[in-house]
Write a protein that binds this DNA or RNA. Structure first.
Lengths: 173, 173
DNA sequence: TAAGGATACTCAGCCGGCTTACTATTTGGA
DNA sequence: TCCAAATAGTAAGCCGGCTGAGTATCCTTA
């Protein structure tokens, strides 16, 4: 019943403490949160957030409309909408109506946005803790995403259509 | 503008699509969200949520106060406070003032809470997608949590103090 | 050509993280 | 003893997920 002691391996139990018995899904969520914490301060200094960073990344290859951004970021349309609102407020992106389809907004990264991205991209590399067999780990994450996101995202993304929607380039304004 | 067409039959690119180049931290966050989606429906039918499940798990080994719950769940005090509010509203836990320290609230799982937990615990096992080398994967997650959560959680948890705060048993009411 | 259906986006509201700020207690030390 | 510091918890407000609804604009087709 003692779930936190100094039993084996000399090196004490460390911060993970009693988490050894946690289900994997919860470990995943916790690890994700902890990694995010490490970024917050640095990102904050650049005037952006976790969610905004994804958008800046996606916009590197050209402007797109919001729905396309949402699909690539794997979030709902309404979520991207608010994220863009904040990025626009910070001056990192611009939105303007699409002439050819007035339902759409064309989202473009600004100069300030490019600068922020340039500063931030190294952070993602530097602040992620070093892990053994990183490539294997990434493959497992991808396989989890693949198998558990099928129902939500499959229809949009498994298409082999040569035009539209699979690469940012094809979604340029 | 058909963004949803045929031509899927081959193995193709799958849902992960362009995510191969994403930084690991973002993959982690996305995988976590996708796994959570799979649980939501089932949990909802039991009247509880992701966050509530953690609390029920922790309360299996006995009642505790809120700060202890927060530490074990690795979230802030204010976060657990609202989670408990919802669990109490659902009748899955009870809170009552601690006689010995009137600042504290003793949190106890109810019979309904035990039932919900019993139903839910199998979900966690069944809904998590099967992954190769699960144990290695868990170890990597634990090591990420360990290294990136040090600053936030170390002071509370690495203590060798034999009394107070490290195991649920020691925090019983 | 005039519906009716699809699509793009926004609004409102919930949950679960977080920070900052506050109250009420308890504890500890001068 | 008594007052300051520490601790337990709540409140308010922000971000980023989500769902459900609602508006505007295509697009299709009868």
């Amino acid at each position: 019943m003692t779930n936190n002691d100094t039993s084996q391996t000399g090196t004490r139990v460390g911060v993970v403490g009693d988490m050894g018995t946690w289900p994997t899904g919860r470990l995943l969520a916790t690890a994700s949160r902890m990694v995010e914490h490490a970024w917050v301060d640095a990102l904050d200094r650049l005037g952006l957030t976790h969610a905004g960073l994804i958008v800046l990344h996606l916009l590197q290859s050209g402007s797109m409309n919001q729905t396309a951004l949402a699909k690539h970021a794997r979030v709902e349309n309404q979520t991207i909408s608010r994220t863009l609102e904040r990025l626009e407020r910070e001056g990192l992106i611009e939105r303007e109506p699409d002439e050819r389809d007035r339902r759409r907004q064309v989202v473009t990264i600004t100069d300030a946005g490019h600068e922020a991205w340039a500063s931030a991209r190294t952070l993602e590399r530097d602040l992620m803790p070093h892990i053994a067999e990183a490539e294997r780990f990434r493959q497992v994450l991808l396989s989890i995403i693949e198998s558990s996101s099928a129902k939500r995202w499959e229809p949009q993304d498994s298409a082999g259509s040569p035009e539209e929607q699979n690469t940012p380039e094809q979604l340029r304004a």
